Simulated scan of single mutants.
Amino acid sequence: MELTIVSAFFDIGRENFKGYERGNNKYISYFKFWARIRNNLIVYTTREFVSEILSIRRNFGLEEKTKVIEIDDYKSFDRDLYNKMKKVMDNEISLNFHKDIKRPESWNVDYNFIMMLKSYCIVDAVQKGYVKGMIAWLDFGFNHGGKDGLINKEEFDFKWEYDFPEKINLFAHQKIDDDRPIFDIVRSMDVYIRGNIIVAPDYLWLKFSYLAKKAMESLLDCGLCDDDQTICLMAYRAQQDIFVIHDVENWYDGLKYFGGNHLTVKKMEKRRDKTYKIYKERARFYLLDGKYNLAIKYYKMYLKEKINNKI
């Protein structure tokens, strides 16, 4: 089943995010890494990036399979929601509720808002007749120019096809916990859903957008805000029958193991130490927070990682 890909890029001043700096040129290079993919592609962006995005696809002979939608102001997708998010995130209590106030989802409203716009962009494309059938969201910075694991840019010269279930396909970073309260997930900043790839038929994107907005408004009513990863989890919990959760290990797996089996992956040894540190940090966080069951759970995972990988 051929997929139409939708993506977006908006300048939110990320080059000034201390510790998370990525300038516009960096994101353009990330896009160029995977832009030779042969699927029909729709990209939402502002005027200053239209010609460059088209030029990249043209150089790969894919201009006719590319549509770039110019947006004057990304806030115009839902200005009321943006203002509500800003009011909540301007509150110091809300900021300090997060485990790590340096991460952009804890303090930057524009970051969280553009993460919300994934479903908004696709719904706009569907309603305007630009796309129909199975639609895949793919982050503009997908794979971070090879840093996330897929190392050969020439291998993206293929048509992405896969027989996905006709549901909303999400890719899980860790096993879904249906019992854990959302506020605890927001506070700890744990990730369950990887938001860089989402696949669904056109009519379910409409439903997903409704559930995502409802989830964000529920968070805001509680004085909280978060990025799309938590919003996706909340949408799934609200109506599980229209979702399929695929358990994956890495950020690129939603493409690699669902139609991109030929894509070369860098050696996993380079990633083990990172996983090891994540488990150890989570165990420490829950121990300090008095949540001993969760602390023990992650400490066991940390030990298992050491034994299995001889760290």
Score class of each variant (00 low, 15 high):
N59G: 15
F60Y: 15
F60H: 14
E64C: 08
E64G: 13
E64R: 15
T66G: 08
K67L: 14
E70R: 12
E70V: 13
K75G: 02
K75H: 11
S76T: 10
F77I: 02
D78G: 07
Y82W: 13
N83E: 10
K84G: 00
V88N: 00
V88T: 05
V88F: 00
E92M: 04
I93D: 08
L95R: 14
L95G: 02
L95I: 03
F97Q: 01
F97L: 01
I101C: 04
R103V: 10
P104E: 02
E105A: 12
W107P: 06
D110M: 08
D110P: 00
Y111A: 10
N112M: 01
M115S: 12
S119R: 05
Y120N: 11
Y120Q: 05
I122S: 06
I122Y: 05
I122V: 13
V123N: 01
V123S: 09
V123H: 02
A125S: 06
K128C: 10
G129K: 10
G129Y: 08
G129A: 08
K132G: 14
A136H: 14
A136K: 14
L138P: 03
D139Y: 09
D139H: 11
F140N: 10
G141K: 10
N143G: 13
G145M: 06
K147T: 07
D148T: 00
D148L: 12
G149I: 07
G149K: 09
N152P: 00
E155D: 12
D157I: 09
F158I: 13
Y162Q: 09
Y162V: 03
D163C: 09
D163T: 06
F164A: 04
F164N: 05
P165Q: 05
E166F: 10
E166W: 06
K167W: 08
K167F: 04
F171S: 00
F171T: 00
F171R: 01
F171Y: 06
F171W: 03
K175V: 05
D178I: 15
D178Y: 13
D179A: 14
D179V: 07
F183R: 12
D184Q: 15
D184N: 14
V186W: 08
V186P: 03
V186T: 05
R187Q: 13
S188P: 09
S188Y: 11
M189Y: 06
D190T: 00
D190V: 01
D190P: 00
I193P: 03
I197A: 04
